[in-house]
C-alpha cells in the first residue's frame, strides 16, 4: 500500500512537472482519438439518422448489423486494419502502417458503428414525434436528416461521448497498426501497457491519472451542456 502511494506521488510529480514525454504522449492520444471520433461522427451521424428516419427494404438487417458491430473486438479491428494497410494489402501503397493515420483509421472503424447505432436510436425517437409534421410541411429527405440531427444535437453529444470513451481507452487496435513506436505512435493506453510491463509504474500511473482526468472532464462538460439544454427544452 505504501508503495502505491509513493508511485502515485511520483506520478503526480511527473504531471505537475509537465514532463515532456508525458505531454507528447497525451497530445498524440488526444489527436488520434479526437480525429477518429470526428471522422466517425461525420460518417456515423448521417448514417444513423438516415436509418432512423427512413424506411427501406433491409432496414432491420442494417440495424442488427450496426448493433452487432458496436461490440467489435479491438484486436480484430486492428488485425483487419493491419492486413489492409500492410505492404501486401490494398491500402499498402499509402504507407500508413505504423503511423498515427493508421491508428486513426483503426479507431474510426471501431467507433463509427457505435456512433451510427446510438444515433439511429436517438434520431428514431425524435423522428417518431416529428414525422407527421415533416410530412405535412413537405420536408424533403435532406432537410429531414439535417433537421433531425440538429434537433437531437444535445442527445447526440452523448453519442459522441460514448465514441470518445471507446476510442480513448482502446489499446488492442492501435498497438497492432501503430506499433507503439516511441515518439511516433505511442499513446496513453499503449504506453501504460508497455511501461507497466517494464516496471516503470510512475509513468504508467501518471498516464492513467491523466486518462481518467480527461474522461471525467469530457463527461462533465457534455453533461453540463446537456443539462442546460434540458432546462431550455432543447434536448
Amino acid at each position: 500500500m505504501e508503495s502505491f502511494w509513493r508511485i502515485l506521488g511520483e506520478a503526480v510529480g511527473l504531471i505537475l512537472a509537465w514532463d515532456s514525454d508525458l505531454i507528447e504522449i497525451v497530445g498524440l492520444s488526444l489527436r488520434v482519438t479526437l480525429s477518429a471520433v470526428a471522422i466517425s461522427c461525420l460518417i456515423g451521424l448521417p448514417l444513423g439518422a438516415m436509418v432512423g428516419a427512413f424506411r427501406f427494404p433491409g432496414r432491420t438487417a442494417v440495424i442488427v448489423m450496426l448493433n452487432s458491430l458496436m461490440g467489435l473486438p479491438p484486436v480484430v479491428v486492428g488485425l483487419i486494419a493491419y492486413l489492409m494497410l500492410s505492404a501486401a494489402g490494398p491500402l499498402g501503397p499509402l504507407e500508413l502502417l505504423y503511423t498515427p493515420a493508421a491508428m486513426i483509421i483503426a479507431q474510426t472503424i471501431l467507433v463509427t458503428p457505435i456512433v451510427a447505432a446510438l444515433s439511429r436510436q436517438v434520431v428514431e425517437d425524435c423522428y417518431r414525434e416529428y414525422a407527421e409534421q415533416f410530412d405535412s410541411l413537405g420536408v424533403g429527405p435532406f432537410d429531414r436528416v439535417a433537421a433531425l440531427l440538429w434537433d437531437a444535437r444535445y442527445s447526440l453529444l452523448t453519442v459522441a461521448l460514448a465514441g470518445f470513451g471507446r476510442a480513448v481507452a482502446e489499446v488492442g487496435a492501435v498497438i497492432i497498426v501503430g506499433g507503439n513506436i516511441n515518439h511516433v505512435t505511442r499513446v496513453m493506453t499503449t504506453t501504460i501497457a508497455l511501461e507497466t510491463s517494464k516496471g516503470n509504474l510512475e509513468l504508467a500511473l501518471a498516464l492513467g491519472v491523466v486518462l481518467l482526468a480527461i474522461a471525467v472532464a469530457v463527461n462533465g462538460a457534455v453533461m453540463t451542456l446537456r443539462a442546460s439544454a434540458v432546462r431550455m427544452a432543447y434536448a
Partner: peptide
C-alpha cells in the same frame, strides 16, 4: 397545412 391536437414544435 395541418395543425395537430398536440402541437409538434421543433427543439428550437
Amino acid at each position: 397545412a395541418m395543425v395537430f391536437q398536440r402541437p409538434v414544435l421543433l427543439r428550437r
